[in-house]
Simulated assay, not measured.
Amino acid sequence: MLAAISVVAIPHIFRQLKPKHVVWSYTVAPVFAFCNAYGTGLTDWSLSSSYGKLAIFIFGSSIGASDGGVVAGLAACGLMMGIVSTASDLIQDFKTGYLTLTSPRSMFVSQVMGTGLGCIISPVVFWIFYKAYDVGLEEGYPAPYAKIYRGIALLGVNGWNQLPKYCLRFCLSFFLLAIAICALKEVAKQRGWWLQDYIPSALGMAVPFFLGSFFTIDMCVGSIVLYIWSKSDPVRAHMFAPAVASGLICGDGIWSLPSSILSLLRIDPPMCMRVFSAETNFQVEEFLYTLRNPAAT
Protein backbone atom coordinates (compact mmCIF):
# COMPACT_ATOMS: atom_id res chain seq x y z
CA MET A 1 0.00 0.00 0.00
CA LEU A 2 2.81 2.40 0.88
CA ALA A 3 4.54 1.58 -2.38
CA ALA A 4 1.35 2.38 -4.31
CA ILE A 5 1.08 5.71 -2.50
CA SER A 6 4.71 6.47 -3.35
CA VAL A 7 4.16 5.69 -7.03
CA VAL A 8 1.47 8.37 -7.09
CA ALA A 9 2.91 10.91 -4.64
CA ILE A 10 6.62 11.03 -5.55
CA PRO A 11 6.10 12.08 -9.21
CA HIS A 12 3.95 14.95 -7.93
CA ILE A 13 6.75 16.11 -5.64
CA PHE A 14 9.55 15.58 -8.15
CA ARG A 15 8.14 16.21 -11.61
CA GLN A 16 11.29 14.86 -13.24
CA LEU A 17 10.49 11.35 -11.98
CA LYS A 18 7.75 9.44 -13.72
CA PRO A 19 5.60 6.73 -12.10
CA LYS A 20 7.45 4.07 -14.11
CA HIS A 21 10.73 5.16 -12.52
CA VAL A 22 9.28 4.77 -9.03
CA VAL A 23 7.85 1.36 -9.95
CA TRP A 24 11.23 0.26 -11.25
CA SER A 25 12.88 1.44 -8.03
CA TYR A 26 10.46 -0.51 -5.87
CA THR A 27 10.98 -3.55 -8.08
CA VAL A 28 14.77 -3.76 -7.80
CA ALA A 29 15.14 -2.25 -4.33
CA PRO A 30 14.23 -5.46 -2.43
CA VAL A 31 17.10 -7.28 -4.14
CA PHE A 32 19.54 -4.55 -3.14
CA ALA A 33 18.01 -4.43 0.34
CA PHE A 34 18.58 -8.15 0.84
CA CYS A 35 22.20 -7.90 -0.31
CA ASN A 36 22.83 -4.87 1.87
CA ALA A 37 21.17 -6.43 4.92
CA TYR A 38 23.24 -9.59 4.49
CA GLY A 39 26.45 -7.60 4.14
CA THR A 40 25.58 -5.41 7.11
CA GLY A 41 24.93 -8.45 9.25
CA LEU A 42 28.37 -9.81 8.43
CA THR A 43 30.44 -6.63 8.50
CA ASP A 44 28.31 -4.14 10.51
CA TRP A 45 28.80 -1.73 7.60
CA SER A 46 25.88 -0.51 5.51
CA LEU A 47 26.50 0.19 1.82
CA SER A 48 23.14 1.82 1.16
CA SER A 49 24.87 4.97 -0.06
CA SER A 50 26.59 2.93 -2.78
CA TYR A 51 23.24 1.71 -4.07
CA GLY A 52 22.00 5.30 -3.94
CA LYS A 53 24.91 6.45 -6.09
CA LEU A 54 24.13 3.65 -8.52
CA ALA A 55 20.57 4.97 -8.77
CA ILE A 56 21.91 8.46 -9.49
CA PHE A 57 23.91 7.22 -12.45
CA ILE A 58 21.12 5.01 -13.82
CA PHE A 59 18.27 7.51 -13.57
CA GLY A 60 20.36 10.59 -14.31
CA SER A 61 21.86 9.20 -17.50
CA SER A 62 18.58 7.68 -18.71
CA ILE A 63 16.48 10.81 -18.16
CA GLY A 64 19.10 13.27 -19.39
CA ALA A 65 20.06 16.81 -18.47
CA SER A 66 17.39 18.47 -20.60
CA ASP A 67 14.59 16.63 -18.79
CA GLY A 68 15.89 17.27 -15.27
CA GLY A 69 18.13 14.26 -14.87
CA VAL A 70 20.05 15.85 -11.97
CA VAL A 71 16.97 16.29 -9.78
CA ALA A 72 15.57 12.94 -10.87
CA GLY A 73 18.82 11.17 -10.04
CA LEU A 74 19.00 12.75 -6.59
CA ALA A 75 15.35 11.93 -5.89
CA ALA A 76 15.87 8.34 -7.01
CA CYS A 77 18.96 8.17 -4.81
CA GLY A 78 16.96 9.23 -1.77
CA LEU A 79 14.24 6.74 -2.61
CA MET A 80 16.68 3.88 -3.09
CA MET A 81 18.66 4.68 0.05
CA GLY A 82 15.46 4.96 2.08
CA ILE A 83 14.37 1.48 1.03
CA VAL A 84 17.76 -0.22 1.19
CA SER A 85 18.92 1.33 4.46
CA THR A 86 15.72 0.34 6.27
CA ALA A 87 16.56 -3.34 5.88
CA SER A 88 20.13 -2.92 7.12
CA ASP A 89 19.00 -0.75 10.03
CA LEU A 90 16.53 -3.45 11.02
CA ILE A 91 19.32 -6.04 10.95
CA GLN A 92 21.47 -3.84 13.18
CA ASP A 93 18.56 -3.33 15.56
CA PHE A 94 17.94 -7.07 15.74
CA LYS A 95 21.63 -7.58 16.40
CA THR A 96 21.49 -5.08 19.25
CA GLY A 97 18.32 -6.73 20.54
CA TYR A 98 20.03 -10.11 20.51
CA LEU A 99 22.93 -8.75 22.55
CA THR A 100 20.58 -7.08 25.04
CA LEU A 101 18.10 -10.01 25.18
CA THR A 102 15.30 -7.85 23.78
CA SER A 103 12.25 -9.42 22.17
CA PRO A 104 12.38 -9.40 18.34
CA ARG A 105 8.73 -8.37 18.30
CA SER A 106 9.51 -5.36 20.48
CA MET A 107 12.37 -4.41 18.20
CA PHE A 108 10.15 -4.63 15.12
CA VAL A 109 7.35 -2.60 16.72
CA SER A 110 9.88 0.02 17.80
CA GLN A 111 11.23 0.14 14.25
CA VAL A 112 7.75 0.73 12.85
CA MET A 113 7.03 3.44 15.41
CA GLY A 114 10.37 5.12 14.75
CA THR A 115 9.75 5.08 11.00
CA GLY A 116 6.36 6.68 11.50
CA LEU A 117 7.76 9.38 13.75
CA GLY A 118 10.57 9.98 11.29
CA CYS A 119 8.05 10.77 8.56
CA ILE A 120 6.90 13.69 10.71
CA ILE A 121 10.09 14.78 12.46
CA SER A 122 12.47 14.66 9.49
CA PRO A 123 10.55 17.15 7.29
CA VAL A 124 10.13 19.49 10.26
CA VAL A 125 13.85 19.41 11.07
CA PHE A 126 14.70 19.94 7.40
CA TRP A 127 12.33 22.90 7.21
CA ILE A 128 13.90 24.46 10.32
CA PHE A 129 17.41 24.14 8.94
CA TYR A 130 16.34 25.32 5.49
CA LYS A 131 14.71 28.45 6.89
CA ALA A 132 17.33 29.22 9.53
CA TYR A 133 20.55 28.72 7.56
CA ASP A 134 21.93 29.27 4.10
CA VAL A 135 22.21 25.58 3.29
CA GLY A 136 25.22 24.76 1.15
CA LEU A 137 27.22 27.90 1.96
CA GLU A 138 30.31 27.97 4.15
CA GLU A 139 28.99 30.83 6.29
CA GLY A 140 25.64 29.08 6.71
CA TYR A 141 25.24 25.32 6.91
CA PRO A 142 27.90 23.70 4.67
CA ALA A 143 26.06 20.41 3.95
CA PRO A 144 29.12 18.76 2.39
CA TYR A 145 27.34 15.57 1.40
CA ALA A 146 24.79 17.58 -0.57
CA LYS A 147 27.62 18.98 -2.68
CA ILE A 148 29.09 15.52 -3.17
CA TYR A 149 25.85 13.95 -4.32
CA ARG A 150 25.04 16.91 -6.56
CA GLY A 151 28.45 16.50 -8.17
CA ILE A 152 27.77 12.81 -8.71
CA ALA A 153 24.42 13.66 -10.30
CA LEU A 154 26.03 16.20 -12.63
CA LEU A 155 28.68 13.66 -13.54
CA GLY A 156 26.06 11.01 -14.27
CA VAL A 157 24.06 13.35 -16.50
CA ASN A 158 26.79 15.23 -18.36
CA GLY A 159 29.69 12.78 -18.24
CA TRP A 160 33.35 13.54 -17.56
CA ASN A 161 33.16 16.85 -19.44
CA GLN A 162 31.28 18.33 -16.49
CA LEU A 163 34.36 18.08 -14.28
CA PRO A 164 36.80 21.01 -14.03
CA LYS A 165 40.05 20.90 -15.95
CA TYR A 166 42.70 18.61 -14.45
CA CYS A 167 40.14 17.33 -11.94
CA LEU A 168 40.73 13.67 -12.77
CA ARG A 169 44.49 14.13 -12.58
CA PHE A 170 44.24 15.66 -9.13
CA CYS A 171 41.84 12.93 -8.03
CA LEU A 172 44.10 10.15 -9.28
CA SER A 173 47.22 11.75 -7.79
CA PHE A 174 45.74 12.11 -4.32
CA PHE A 175 44.15 8.68 -4.59
CA LEU A 176 47.62 7.19 -5.07
CA LEU A 177 48.97 9.42 -2.29
CA ALA A 178 46.31 8.13 0.11
CA ILE A 179 47.20 4.52 -0.75
CA ALA A 180 50.88 5.29 -0.18
CA ILE A 181 50.15 6.90 3.21
CA CYS A 182 48.01 3.95 4.32
CA ALA A 183 50.65 1.47 3.13
CA LEU A 184 53.39 3.36 4.97
CA LYS A 185 51.30 3.39 8.13
CA GLU A 186 50.73 -0.37 7.96
CA VAL A 187 54.43 -1.06 7.35
CA ALA A 188 55.38 1.20 10.26
CA LYS A 189 52.90 -0.57 12.50
CA GLN A 190 54.12 -4.05 11.54
CA ARG A 191 57.78 -3.17 12.02
CA GLY A 192 57.24 -1.13 15.16
CA TRP A 193 58.67 2.13 13.86
CA TRP A 194 58.47 5.01 16.32
CA LEU A 195 56.88 7.31 13.74
CA GLN A 196 53.79 5.11 13.27
CA ASP A 197 51.76 7.34 15.61
CA TYR A 198 52.74 10.46 13.67
CA ILE A 199 51.73 9.35 10.18
CA PRO A 200 48.55 11.27 9.35
CA SER A 201 45.29 9.66 8.33
CA ALA A 202 44.31 10.27 4.71
CA LEU A 203 40.65 10.23 5.71
CA GLY A 204 41.29 12.74 8.47
CA MET A 205 43.06 15.05 6.03
CA ALA A 206 40.15 14.79 3.60
CA VAL A 207 37.47 15.80 6.12
CA PRO A 208 38.36 19.54 6.27
CA PHE A 209 38.14 19.77 2.48
CA PHE A 210 34.46 18.88 2.75
CA LEU A 211 33.48 20.55 6.02
CA GLY A 212 35.75 23.58 5.93
CA SER A 213 38.94 24.59 7.69
CA PHE A 214 37.12 25.54 10.90
CA PHE A 215 36.57 21.86 11.60
CA THR A 216 40.31 21.27 11.99
CA ILE A 217 40.44 23.54 15.04
CA ASP A 218 37.85 21.40 16.82
CA MET A 219 39.70 18.21 15.92
CA CYS A 220 43.02 19.69 17.03
CA VAL A 221 41.64 20.73 20.44
CA GLY A 222 40.02 17.34 20.95
CA SER A 223 43.20 15.50 19.94
CA ILE A 224 45.30 17.56 22.36
CA VAL A 225 42.89 16.90 25.24
CA LEU A 226 42.80 13.17 24.47
CA TYR A 227 46.60 13.05 24.17
CA ILE A 228 47.10 14.71 27.57
CA TRP A 229 44.43 12.49 29.12
CA SER A 230 46.04 9.35 27.66
CA LYS A 231 49.42 10.32 29.08
CA SER A 232 48.11 11.19 32.54
CA ASP A 233 45.59 8.34 32.96
CA PRO A 234 45.79 5.83 30.08
CA VAL A 235 43.38 3.28 31.60
CA ARG A 236 40.51 5.71 32.17
CA ALA A 237 41.19 7.46 28.87
CA HIS A 238 40.87 4.17 27.01
CA MET A 239 37.65 3.30 28.85
CA PHE A 240 35.84 6.63 28.80
CA ALA A 241 37.12 8.39 25.66
CA PRO A 242 34.32 6.96 23.45
CA ALA A 243 31.70 8.01 26.00
CA VAL A 244 33.11 11.53 26.21
CA ALA A 245 33.25 11.77 22.42
CA SER A 246 29.66 10.54 22.11
CA GLY A 247 28.48 13.12 24.62
CA LEU A 248 30.24 15.94 22.82
CA ILE A 249 28.84 14.87 19.45
CA CYS A 250 25.33 14.48 20.84
CA GLY A 251 25.43 17.82 22.65
CA ASP A 252 26.73 19.67 19.63
CA GLY A 253 24.10 18.06 17.42
CA ILE A 254 21.23 18.83 19.79
CA TRP A 255 22.35 22.44 20.15
CA SER A 256 21.92 22.94 16.41
CA LEU A 257 18.14 22.81 16.88
CA PRO A 258 17.93 25.64 19.49
CA SER A 259 20.44 27.58 17.40
CA SER A 260 18.28 27.26 14.30
CA ILE A 261 15.18 28.31 16.26
CA LEU A 262 17.02 31.41 17.51
CA SER A 263 17.99 32.18 13.92
CA LEU A 264 14.37 31.82 12.80
CA LEU A 265 13.32 34.27 15.52
CA ARG A 266 16.04 36.71 14.39
CA ILE A 267 17.68 36.69 17.83
CA ASP A 268 21.31 37.74 17.54
CA PRO A 269 24.03 36.69 20.01
CA PRO A 270 24.98 39.26 22.67
CA MET A 271 28.51 39.56 21.33
CA CYS A 272 30.55 38.62 18.30
CA MET A 273 34.23 37.65 18.21
CA ARG A 274 36.35 38.01 15.10
CA VAL A 275 40.05 37.56 14.44
CA PHE A 276 41.70 39.99 12.02
CA SER A 277 45.20 40.65 10.84
CA ALA A 278 47.07 43.54 12.45
CA GLU A 279 46.43 45.84 9.49
CA THR A 280 42.72 45.02 9.30
CA ASN A 281 42.38 45.33 13.06
CA PHE A 282 43.88 48.83 12.92
CA GLN A 283 41.35 49.85 10.26
CA VAL A 284 38.49 48.46 12.33
CA GLU A 285 39.71 50.35 15.40
CA GLU A 286 39.83 53.57 13.40
CA PHE A 287 36.30 53.01 12.14
CA LEU A 288 34.97 52.27 15.63
CA TYR A 289 36.69 55.40 16.92
CA THR A 290 34.83 57.51 14.36
CA LEU A 291 31.55 55.99 15.56
CA ARG A 292 32.30 56.89 19.17
CA ASN A 293 33.57 60.35 18.23
CA PRO A 294 31.63 61.73 15.26
CA ALA A 295 33.57 65.01 15.49
CA ALA A 296 36.76 63.15 14.57
CA THR A 297 35.47 62.64 11.04
Rank of each mutant, 00 (worst) to 15 (best):
D233M: 00
A237N: 10
M239I: 13
I228H: 14
A241F: 11
W160Q: 09
S232V: 13
F214D: 11
S230F: 07
F209A: 11
A206H: 02
D197H: 14
F170K: 15
S173N: 04
A180S: 03
K185G: 01
Q190E: 15
D252F: 10
P164H: 03
L226C: 10
Q190D: 12
S201I: 13
W255M: 11
C167I: 02
L203T: 13
L211Y: 02
A245Y: 11
A245Q: 10
G212Y: 10
K231Q: 08
G251W: 06
Q162I: 00
V187N: 13
G222Q: 01
I199W: 06
A178N: 03
V207W: 00
V207D: 00
L226M: 14
S201V: 06
C182H: 06
D252I: 08
A206R: 05
A237E: 05
I179T: 06
M239W: 14
R169I: 03
L172Y: 07
S230I: 06
C171P: 01
E186Q: 14
G192F: 10
F210W: 08
Q162P: 00
M219G: 08
D233W: 11
N161M: 09
A180Q: 08
Q190V: 08
V221Q: 09
I181M: 04
L168R: 12
Q162D: 00
C220D: 09
C220R: 01
V207Q: 02
I181N: 00
S230E: 15
W229Y: 14
W229I: 00
V225G: 05
L176W: 10
R236F: 03
I224S: 05
D233C: 04
C250P: 04
K189F: 09
L226W: 04
V221I: 15
C250M: 13
S246L: 12
V225D: 01
K189S: 05
S230K: 11
D252Q: 06
G247I: 07
A202I: 06
D197V: 04
A243M: 02
S201Y: 04
W194E: 12
G159W: 05
H238I: 03
M219N: 07
C250R: 08
W229P: 00
